[in-house]
Design a protein around this nucleic acid. Structure first.
Length: 655
DNA sequence: GAGTTTGAAACT
DNA sequence: CAGTTTCAAACTC
């Protein structure tokens, strides 16, 4: 699904998916996140100057302007070059804001350490459209682009990635009005939202947590604190299954209480959707008098997509936990890494297994479960998230109307195996054939990979959203048996694929570790000292292995050549027909291919065989031989067409 | 496509 | 932890 604007998406480099650079040494201590930013100004030695995320204001290119509409005004500071449209949301969506807002900057105090930061409060009935990301500092003379939201209305922090690779953050923590309401953390007034940004090159990580800071009156609510916590080095992503990348993901920090969480040990982002608990919900669109949050929670998430956020589904290997903090803050994002496994969990049971969140498959996204309450979760696989129909996502214009979109639970709407069309093409997954495990055991590849069964051949499958509770229990059981059951078995060394190895090793006895029974061989890695296999032939110098590899490579090359030849031939034929058909048929004659009779075809084959024999006699390489044969085939075709044309000319009436 | 082999997962 | 059983994928015919 399209969850991010092309402009913004284009700003997201591939590196955003790569968190492999995050090493254990770079992990953030938990307390680091919790500390108020004011009390710990960013150490100058941190290379923020070069890697700090570029946070821009969603305001027009003018440095400061007064925006007005029929219902609201918005005052924004901005970095030059940024183009932001504040359009009445009514033009775009039926969802209307319930409050009017006057946003103004409050100085650089809380963001003084983060250059190029600005934020804007989105006025009611307005929708943000990001056209461009600014790179120039704010021209207001203050700390560049610094601004603090006044969250009476829609609040927005915009981030993404500039062309230079600097992260740009998008956040719209609507819950900042009452950050603690849905968290059960106590006094909402004393829980201003603290936003911290963990910066990597091309990998913005946002952590939003409550902090004990109260800025301004209760009406102005809390200030948002932005802080760059850390920068890490970029690392190249190693290809393979574990590198599936989703550049379009769910909206981050969307207004009605969308919280993004990243679980330690998982390289996927978790998004927690909780009930909007804004303090100003009195003017609900449609005149709804329902102010009960518990009722609002059951509403579908009606989201429009003026601005949508991409959540990087990053490669699995070597991603380290950054913030293993429990889900107690308004929104948290913690970077981890794992293979693109995805997992569904019942919404109503997730808290029971939160201690095991670190072992959840990557790609898991916490979303409100159908009919679940405020704290409900449904853990959706990342591919599902990307496929949740548009209405399932929060837009900047959405208000407290926050409903559970039915499509979230409709697997029938998902494409093959829960993958997007493009991904399914690039990373097809074989359907399982489970009959006894209900697809709730690790026997099932779908389940083991954290994916829903979809288009599988399984019998009595419980690996779907219709069996949330059963699936949860199964997951919990697996995690009880093996806390890392859903983590990738194939680790990756720092030097790349050559250093990949099985985390547990195989136990093969008869296969010689040269068949796909062997998990090492299947993963195209060699056995290691960890393996307990017998008669292993899957090692570097193994002649059997080399032979197999050689045969496999040769077969692969042949397939590629054949494919290329077929493609070229088809193209040539198509091209010839296209170019010749009008001339031939203009007079009512036969199409050229109608002259390809059996005799003509046999003659053509003879020509081709002759060419092949000649190539063989001259010991031409296979590629050359194939080229010669194809060229001969092309000449044959031209002759056929030429004769067809002559026939038409000679016999314009009967042909 | 049916039957067999294999080894991981699950169970005891 | 070791031995056994279960299971589904890989493989063979």
């Amino acid at each position: 699904m399209d969850v991010v604007s092309p402009e913004l998406n284009s700003l997201l480099p591939d590196e955003i998916m790569d968190t492999e650079a995050i090493t254990m040494e770079e992990e953030l201590p938990v307390e680091h996140l919790a500390a108020p930013p004011q009390s710990e100004p960013e150490p100058p030695q941190v290379p923020m100057e070069t890697e700090v995320p570029e946070i821009v204001s969603l305001c027009p290119a003018t440095t400061s302007m007064q925006m007005s509409s029929a219902s609201t005004d918005a005052q924004c500071s901005t970095s030059s070059g940024t183009q932001l449209l504040l359009a009445p949301s009514g033009l775009i969506t039926s969802t209307t804001m319930t409050t009017t807002t006057s946003a103004k900057t409050t100085g650089p105090a809380v963001t003084q350490n983060l250059p190029k930061i600005s934020s804007v409060t989105v006025p009611a009935n307005h929708q943000l459209i990001i056209n461009k990301v600014a790179s120039a500092p704010a021209a207001d003379g203050k700390s560049p682009g610094t601004a603090v939201l006044k969250p009476e209305g829609q609040k927005l922090l915009v981030a993404g990635l500039s062309k230079t690779g600097q992260p740009i953050m998008l956040a719209l923590p609507h819950t900042w009005n009452k950050p603690a309401t849905t968290q059960g953390t106590g006094d909402a007034k004393a829980q201003p939202t603290q936003i911290k940004m963990l910066t990597t090159v091309g990998k913005p990580v946002i952590a939003v947590s409550s902090a004990s800071q109260l800025m301004g009156s209760s009406s102005t609510l809390q200030a948002q604190q932005l802080k760059t916590l850390q920068t890490v080095k970029p690392v190249q992503t190693v290809g393979g299954v574990g590198t599936s990348q989703f550049k379009t993901i769910i909206p981050l920090g969307t207004p009605p209480n969308v919280q993004q969480i990243q679980v330690p040990g998982s390289r996927f982002h978790y998004v927690r959707l909780v009930t909007a608990t804004t303090g100003s919900t009195t003017a609900q669109s449609g005149g709804s008098t329902n102010t009960n949050p518990s009722i609002q929670q059951a509403k579908p998430v009606m989201m429009n997509a003026a601005v949508r956020m991409s959540v990087p589904i990053v490669p699995a290997q070597n991603i380290k936990q950054v913030v293993p903090k429990p889900l107690t803050s308004a929104a948290q994002v913690v970077t981890t890494s794992q293979t693109p496994q995805r997992l569904i969990m019942p919404a109503t049971h997730l808290p029971q297994i939160q201690p095991n969140l670190t072992s959840l498959p990557p790609g898991t996204v916490l979303a409100p479960a159908h009919g679940s309450g405020n704290m409900g979760y449904a853990v959706l696989p990342a591919p599902y998230v990307t496929q949740i129909p548009q209405p399932a996502f929060v837009t900047l214009t959405s208000s407290s109307t926050f409903s559970t979109a039915t499509p979230i639970q409709t697997q029938a709407r998902l494409s093959l195996n829960g993958l997007s069309t493009s991904e399914a093409t690039s990373r097809p997954r074989k359907p399982c054939n489970c009959t006894r495990s209900q697809c709730l055991k690790l026997y099932c590849d779908c389940f083991a990979n954290g994916e829903f069964c979809n288009n599988c051949n399984c019998v009595n499958c419980f690996n779907n959203l219709d069996h949330e509770s059963e699936r949860l229990k199964a997951i919990k059981a697996c995690l009880d048996r093996n806390p890392v059951a859903f983590k990738p078995k194939i680790g990756k060394g720092k030097q790349g694929e050559s250093d990949r190895r099985h985390s547990k090793g195989c136990n093969c006895k008869k296969s010689g570790c040269l068949k796909n029974y062997c998990e090492c061989y299947e993963a195209k890695i060699m056995c290691s000292s960890i393996c307990k296999c017998m008669g292993c032939k899957n090692f570097e110098e193994s002649p059997e292995r080399k032979t197999l590899m050689h045969l496999a490579d040769a077969a692969e090359v042949r397939v590629q050549q054949q494919t290329a030849a077929k493609t070229k031939l088809s193209s040539q034929i198509s091209d010839l027909l296209t170019r010749t058909t009008p001339a031939v048929t203009s007079g009512g004659g036969k199409l050229p291919y109608t002259f390809v009779t059996k005799e003509v075809a046999e003659a053509t084959c003879d020509c081709l065989l002759e060419q092949a024999e000649q190539a063989e006699l001259t010991t031409q390489p296979q590629a050359v031989a194939e080229r010669l044969i194809l060229e001969e085939f092309g000449r044959c075709l031209r002759r056929i067409i030429s004769f067809a044309g002559k026939a038409k000319t000679d016999c314009p009436i009967n042909c």
